[in-house]
Simulated scan of single mutants.
Amino acid sequence: MTLSVPTGRAVDLRVQSVDEILERVERSLQTRFAPDTVVRKRRSVGARTDRDTWVRIERRLLDKISDQGWNGTERAARLTGIAQPAWQGCVVWPDAEEAAMWRADETDLLPGGPIGTAVLSEAPQVSDAWWRAFNASLDALSAQNTSRVATPDTEAITQDLVTAAIRGTFPGSFDTTVEEWVPTHGDLNWANMTAPTFCLFDWEDWGNAPRGLDSASLWASSLAVPALADRVRRERHADFESRDGKLMTLFACSKILGPDAHPQDPRLEAARQMAEQTIQDLQAD
Rank of each mutant, 00 (worst) to 15 (best):
P35Y: 09
D244V: 02
S242Q: 08
L109N: 03
L120H: 07
N208G: 00
R272H: 06
L109Y: 06
L257K: 00
S221G: 03
A191F: 01
S17P: 11
E155P: 02
E106P: 14
D108C: 09
S142M: 02
I166F: 04
G81F: 05
P152W: 01
Q144D: 07
A227M: 06
T117W: 08
C253Q: 00
E204W: 05
S28A: 15
L188W: 03
T176M: 03
A261S: 10
W190Q: 00
I65W: 05
D260Q: 13
L247T: 00
D244Q: 07
Q277S: 14
W54Q: 12
A123M: 13
C199L: 00
I82P: 04
D153G: 11
G212H: 08
T177Y: 04
A164D: 14
R234A: 15
M1R: 07
L161K: 05
F251I: 06
K246G: 03
S215H: 04
A220M: 04
A191Y: 10
A143H: 06
T2W: 04
V15H: 01
S66W: 12
S242I: 12
A104W: 14
T197G: 14
D128M: 10
E26N: 11
M101C: 13
S217A: 10
G207P: 02
E180G: 00
A229C: 10
R9T: 05
A271H: 12
R103E: 12
R24C: 05
L250M: 09
D19P: 01
W54P: 06
T37S: 15
A275K: 00
D153K: 14
E155A: 15
E180A: 13
D205S: 11
P114H: 01
A275T: 02
E276T: 15
G46A: 12
S121V: 10
V25N: 14
F170I: 01
Q125K: 13
P114R: 00
R75Y: 12
Q144W: 04
G81P: 02
F240Q: 03
S4A: 09
I57W: 04
I21E: 00
D230W: 06
G212C: 08
E204A: 13
C199H: 01
E97N: 12
D36P: 03
P111M: 09
A195H: 10
P183E: 03
L200C: 08
D139C: 10
A140T: 01
T169Y: 00
D214W: 05
V39W: 13
E106F: 13
E269P: 02
D12K: 15
N189C: 07
T49I: 13
A140F: 01
D139Y: 07
A195V: 12
W131A: 15
I166L: 00
Q159E: 06
D105K: 09
G89V: 09
D63V: 08
T31L: 15
D108W: 04
F174D: 01
